[in-house]
Amino acid sequence: MEIVKGIVAGNIRSIARAVSIVENNMEGKEELLDELHTHTGNAVVWGITGPPGAGKSTLADRLIQKERSEGKKVAVIAVDPSSPFTGGSLLGDRLRMQTHATDPGVFIRSMASRGHLGGISTAAFDAVKIFDAAGYDTIMVETIGVGQTEVEIIELSDIVMLVLVPGMGDEIQAMKAGVMEIGDIFVVNKSDREGAERLKAEVEYVLMISEKPKESPQKKICMTSARDNTGIDELHRILQTKHTEDLKSGFLEEKRKHRLNKELSNLFYLKTREFLEEQLSIGAQMDTWIEGIYKKEIKPYKFISEKMKELKKEYVKG
């Protein structure tokens, strides 16, 4: 494939096009990803998540700067929600990273979270593969940490930064059950604000009581002010150390295999479902079935079990 050559050679236009192909689930997507597969596995993937207004994009901007100073190529995938009503979206995260727009070593791509067949997490992960194959050393995936889809995206990362800001003390209580678990590094941003120390203490407490006594790596806390560019060096150091440690301990491999497991299961599910829909002409007959069930002429479980029998007769042979 011509486009694959372009991507591997680092051609910006090819990369951009390829991301559109996976985003829109366009023809040639599967072939493209298969061809890229051998070229992947070199990039480090960082997830950045946290509530709106936590300063995720500004933090990403600062981390780009750090990575660039070490000569690394960086890609950022910034995911923003789209309107559930119109399907439209206003993607503004890159605004805070725009000073890097003309740097040939930086690629920023905005993605809307809805309207993707197969889900945004699939699209985002496919995009990660493209950047990986294109030779980007570090790929950051940024998203608002609310809702299942965002958690899924973040689970695709090697290291997850959960960005928190003072003045949301109640939220942290609500978060501890869900999102807190996926964070590897807890970034207390806007550390110049009142309450930053208290927030840090709170996070420490939550981690202490929720930490599993397993040999999984220690979670870290870091205070930053992305706006004033303070604490970024330390955060960057933590990111690097963690990567080295995870590589050595085998945790990274475990995590990446877990990711592949998810991806493959997901694909199986998707493909099977597509297949079933086709075989049973679900789309065409759904209305009739619903009508029957609604009028109590059909019993739902009996119906399903008959359908499955039909299928098995057809395909399970020998």
Binding site: T86, G88, S89, Q98
Partner: peptide, 11 residues
């Protein structure tokens, strides 16, 4: 956006 497009705003 309200018309259903994906809009990228750069500031």
């Amino acid at each position: 956006k309200d018309a259903g497009y994906e809009v990228i705003y750069t500031g």
